[in-house]
Nucleic acid binder design. Structure first.
Lengths: 165, 165
DNA sequence: ACAAGACTGTTGATGTGTCAACAGTTGATG
DNA sequence: CATCAACTGTTGACACATCAACAGTCTTGT
């Protein structure tokens, strides 16, 4: 085993716990959105559109949700089919669509959001404000480290390829 | 907005941060396993088998990975096709297979695991042991709360259905 | 001993995600 | 202005995830 100290073992455990907890959270959110027959991903799209009532292009959605462009197509397709979202041509640029919530989509969001926020707060019941604060900064650091590690890995594999053949 | 206090807003932010960080981490792990052409899910299967060298049934895998049975079929199919894993009939019970790592699968795991553990430790660089400790218990609490909330939601939707029609 | 129920793995339908390749549009550079 | 590069959305191939339904195979209760 390459985890020598107790400290190292706990850090390994912490990583697993991080993955487990977000997975459980994701599944719970599924239960919340079920009532409106929305997937978490569909909710994320609608939530973003709710905060941008003028609408966004699909590429904007893709960038802000950190999801591939090609995935947005299908997501918007399905939401549009249910009249929760609408694609509109943009006068100045014929490449893109403006995607915005329909009134119906807006109504649904206003039903969901209070429950969503309430659940988010209940999630941390029993955790003090100080701990929340610490957690926010620790997780920020995890994001940075993850990206650093991923960058190093893909760089080293790139040089290995260059050297290889 | 149904988030009245600063404390509530931070708890909402913390939830988003939790989801973001695990997502980034998941993507980084993708970069780590890429060298062996493994997906994170495939790694999880092989890691579990590595800790159970006698092998496990597909249902065991499904339960321990918290993944649907039907998903295991394809996962094991693809690993078996690459000779990383082997299905064996079980003498006493004709319903199940025993799934175990092949020597080749074992070799790969022994290459990956040190790097995996090392990355897990590096993930928390700059975070003190005390914080790790606190985080472990806070995330445990998040898991509990998520499950409680999910249970409540599905119960209330069940009664709503009963009352409905 | 036998019917009823529980469990195992597979299949097919569907949603979500990736990537590579494409066609069309716009913008920038010569 | 003509070309080249960059960008937008879509498609098709694939992996991964769920669920419902199924066929076999135990297990249990009477």
């Amino acid at each position: 085993m390459s985890l020598n100290s107790r400290s190292q073992q706990q850090r390994y455990e912490a990583m697993l716990q991080l993955l487990r907890s977000s997975d459980t959270l994701w599944n719970a959110s599924h239960a919340l959105f079920e009532r409106w027959d929305l997937s978490p991903s569909q909710f994320n799209v609608m939530n973003l559109l709710h905060n941008n009532s003028e609408g966004l292009s699909q590429s904007d959605l893709s960038r802000q949700l950190v999801v591939h462009r090609s995935n947005i197509t299908g997501l918007v397709d399905r939401l549009e089919k249910r009249n929760l979202v609408k694609r509109t041509a943009v006068p100045g640029d014929r490449r893109l669509y403006n995607v915005a919530l329909t009134p119906q989509g807006s109504t649904i969001m206003e039903e969901i959001l209070p429950l969503y926020h309430e659940s988010a707060v209940r999630l941390w019941e029993g955790v003090t404000d100080d701990r929340i604060q610490a957690l926010l900064s620790d997780l920020e650091s995890v994001i940075q480290q993850s990206q650093t590690i991923a960058r190093e890995l893909s760089e080293s594999s790139a040089t290995a390829q260059r050297k290889g053949k």
